[in-house]
């Protein structure tokens, strides 16, 4: 799909930055697979109990909603790691050289601040409030704090990803070789990357990391932006 993906130098894949991020991607990826799978089965079970057993399950609705909260928030963290969140690239496409990296550091810091201030701090306050005050869910009797735990957890993951990106930017500013394939410089392409459903390019599913063979991946500054 993407034209002319530049391949990451093989040596870079041994770099701790690449390995740590791959490991987190892998674990988060499988976690999302399980959440999605359970969500589908859960709703099918709801249909089944209503039509076949004529005894509608009392918990499926609530479980479905809480699974969506988790899929949404943890998925948002995963998508942040893939830089798949849509942004306007009016400014960045006009930048060249080192300014691109300084811009990336700025955006990473802003996003990290939100993830830290609202998702982690606000989330921890919310979780502790829910546990402290003992609020439970109606059907499952689940502590609401467990549901809300997804906020600080995914916030921390987003902080992690953007820290990794900032470290990588600093490395590039110091002239070191690239270690991450995800610093795609166009949002349009980053978006196609995740939105693409009939992917032609043989990119590596995160699910076989770590351990599997490393992917041919685009490096920073590879494809030219479509504008």
């Amino acid at each position: 799909m993407r034209s002319d993906p530049t391949v990451l130098p093989p040596a870079s894949r041994d770099h701790p930055l690449y390995r740590v991020k791959s490991a987190v991607d892998w674990a988060l990826g499988w976690f999302l697979v399980i959440l999605m799978g359970v969500a589908v089965v859960n709703v099918l079970w709801q249909v089944f109990t209503r039509f076949v057993l004529s005894d509608p399950s009392a918990f499926t609705d609530e479980l479905a909603r809480y699974l969506l909260v988790w899929v949404g928030l943890f998925g948002a963290a995963y998508a942040s790691g893939k830089r798949a969140h849509l942004a306007i690239d009016l400014l960045r496409t006009r930048l060249t050289g080192r300014a691109v990296h300084w811009h990336g550091i700025f955006v990473g810091a802003v996003v990290g601040l939100f993830a830290l201030g609202v998702m982690v701090v606000g989330g921890v306050r919310l979780v502790s409030l829910s546990f402290l005050l003992g609020q439970t869910s109606a059907a499952l009797g689940l502590p609401l704090g467990v549901v809300y735990l997804a906020l600080p957890a995914s916030g921390a993951l987003i902080v992690f990803y953007f820290t990794v990106f900032i470290v990588e930017r600093v490395r590039r500013l110091r002239g070191l070789p690239p270690t991450l394939p995800v610093l795609l410089e166009t949002t349009a392409e980053a978006y196609v990357e995740t939105a693409d459903t009939a992917r032609v390019s043989p990119d590596e599913p995160d699910l076989t990391h770590p351990g599997g063979p490393p992917p041919p991946a685009p490096a920073d500054g590879g494809p030219s932006p479509p504008r």
Binding site: G29, L32, V33, L35, M36, G37, V71, G72, L73, F74, G75, A76, Y78, A79, K82, A84, H85, L86, Y191, T194, A195, T197, P205, D206, L207
Partner: peptide, 10 residues
């Protein structure tokens, strides 16, 4: 499953 989770998460 992962692709759809990640696409919708955006």
């Amino acid at each position: 499953l992962l692709d759809s989770a990640s696409t919708t998460a955006v």
